[in-house]
């Protein structure tokens, strides 16, 4: 007799990424050192199959936000959940900013990908083809250019079949043609697999092209007085993209001009 087994509810309706009141700070203090905040009270959701772009000026805490989501930044409070489960229990595919250093120099690109991503050879080849890349995976990192290693980092992140994809400046070393190709392939992958993705980039055009929504983090001055005013200030929405702007009470001019440029880009799209 056949038994019909129902899938767990979270499998049927994955809720994507939920970030609640995430705070991060510098220093050794375990419980919210407000003297040295990086960002404070950041909350957002990313639905499965959606891509959130994160933008902001240098030092705003974009990379730290990525590290918090990956569980690497210890000085943090708040909640990070993937499909209603703690993020620490989920598979996360990460494309780090220091992509070159993230590869083991003694192993080939292929070994790096399979050792960390745990994928079969056929899967790696399939991914390489689907991203439209031409890469000799038998080479070792010291024999490769920055662009080649970054391509391998993208394959490695996807090869692990992640529940969440995190990419910190994933196109910084790619030439324009390959970057455009990978952007399209990445978007198709995320939509196809139905996983949430977060991408940090200074290239606003690539964010507009790739993302469904963009979170702008303005750099906050490191004073306690400004922390309380750090909240979701406005949401700019158009046909293609939603722009979530997080703002401090007295966010600097840099952040303001950043948002202006983003808004102009949106109006052009």
């Amino acid at each position: 007799m056949k038994t019909v087994r129902s899938l767990p509810e979270e499998k049927l309706y994955p809720s994507g990424l939920t970030v609640q009141q995430l705070c991060a700070w510098f220093g050794d203090e375990d419980d919210g050192d407000r003297r040295n905040p990086i960002f404070w009270g950041v909350s957002f959701d990313v639905q499965p199959g959606y891509i959130l772009g994160v933008a902001g000026p240098n030092g705003a805490g974009k990379s730290t936000l990525m590290r918090c989501l990956a569980g690497l930044h210890q000085q943090r409070t708040g909640e990070v959940k993937i499909n209603d489960q703690p993020a620490t229990a989920q598979r996360i595919g990460i494309i780090p900013q220091a992509y070159t250093e993230s590869f083991f120099p003694w192993a080939s690109l292929y070994t790096n990908i399979t050792m960390v991503g745990g994928s079969a050879r056929s899967r790696v080849i399939e991914l390489t083809r689907s991203l439209g890349l031409s890469l000799d995976l038998g080479l070792r990192p010291p024999q490769c250019s920055g662009g080649m290693i970054q391509q391998a980092a993208i394959i490695r992140a996807l090869a692990s079949n992640p529940n969440l994809l995190i990419a910190d400046e994933p196109f910084s070393a790619l030439d324009v043609r390959i970057a455009a190709m990978v952007r399209r392939a990445l978007r198709a992958y995320v939509k196809d697999q139905g996983i949430p993705a977060i991408i940090v980039s200074h290239d606003l055009l690539s964010l507009v092209e790739l993302c469904d929504m963009v979170l702008v983090i303005p750099g906050i001055p490191y004073t306690t007085a400004n922390i309380e005013g750090y909240e979701l200030a406005k949401v700019i929405q158009n046909e293609n993209l939603t722009l979530h702007v997080h703002s401090a009470g007295s966010n600097g001019e840099e952040a303001g001009s950043f948002i202006d440029r983003m808004t102009k880009l949106l109006s052009r799209v």
């Binding site: 192993a107 080939s108 292929y110 070994t111 050792m115 080849i125 890469l135 000799d136 995976l137 038998g138």
Partner: peptide, 10 residues
């Protein structure tokens, strides 16, 4: 470790 796969040179 099996890293030298010439067939991976796509």
């Amino acid at each position: 470790l099996g890293g030298e796969h010439s067939t991976l040179n796509l």
